[in-house]
Design a protein around this nucleic acid. Sequence first.
DNA 1: AATGGGACCTGCGCGC
DNA 2: TGCGCGCAGGTCCCAT
Length: 267
Amino acid sequence: MPELPEVTTIVNQLNKEILLTNIKKVTVTDKRLIKDVEPNEFIKKVTGSTIKEVLRRGKVIIIKLEDKLFLIFHLRISGWLLLHSEYQKSARVSFELSNNLKLSFCDQRVLGEIRLVEDWHNLHIIKSMGPEPLSLSGEKFIELFKGKKLKIKPLLMDQTFIAGIGNLYAQELLFCAKINPEKRADSLTKDQLEKLYSCLINILKDAIEKKGSSVDTYRQVSGSKGAYAEVLKVYQREKEPCCRCNHPIVRKTIAGRGTYFCPECQK
DNA sequence: AATGGGACCTGCGCGC
DNA sequence: TGCGCGCAGGTCCCAT
């Protein structure tokens, strides 16, 4: 799933390859991805625009076209962006650029979203979003937990609590911090929260360095896989021995989401 | 405030 | 071989 490391990888790569290119042609193969605007109007407004800047907030990709025109992408579960044309399978909306690259929004399950807005700060998803984890000090991070009664895992995945953490990284960082995903957030000790903070920063940075986790459809803009899936410790490793204590990894549904963890060393 | 459910979607893996 | 079914996942929305 595209979470903070995957979206960061995509945004970094887009900034290297498509800045100041002009959008020459837009092709909408699947209208369902385009939200809040008629596809024909979308095509008309976007065609001829120049890509000024590519930004990220949480899992949202923001492409600045003009001072008051922003293209917004949300990859949701199965979306990915391609710049090189070998893997055009599932391409649903494509942008042909003046540097002869084609930017394609691909999405197997069609739950992704494309919007066109005047001011991205006004989007509901942006306004309600919690802080960026990589811009957060340890003290600020620990303060966020005051009075939170939710189980720690769904809390970490709550985008209004902290931005960019999804199902995969929530599980990996709880394993790293040796915390049971069902623990109530307000029952964690200061030591546990400090450990969780260092795991959060280290795992996100490492995953960005490895260009994300390709466990499903996610790819870099080149079509290559990210390398972090190879070092996942618990995600999708049910019944395999825990790398710390050898106890089999367990899968359990927590708050409606599949969750892998080690019941022996995550307390 | 927390929790649970359904909706959106497709492709995969399962049982038969 | 092939059918039908259930599941996965992020976000929003409704109900309790």
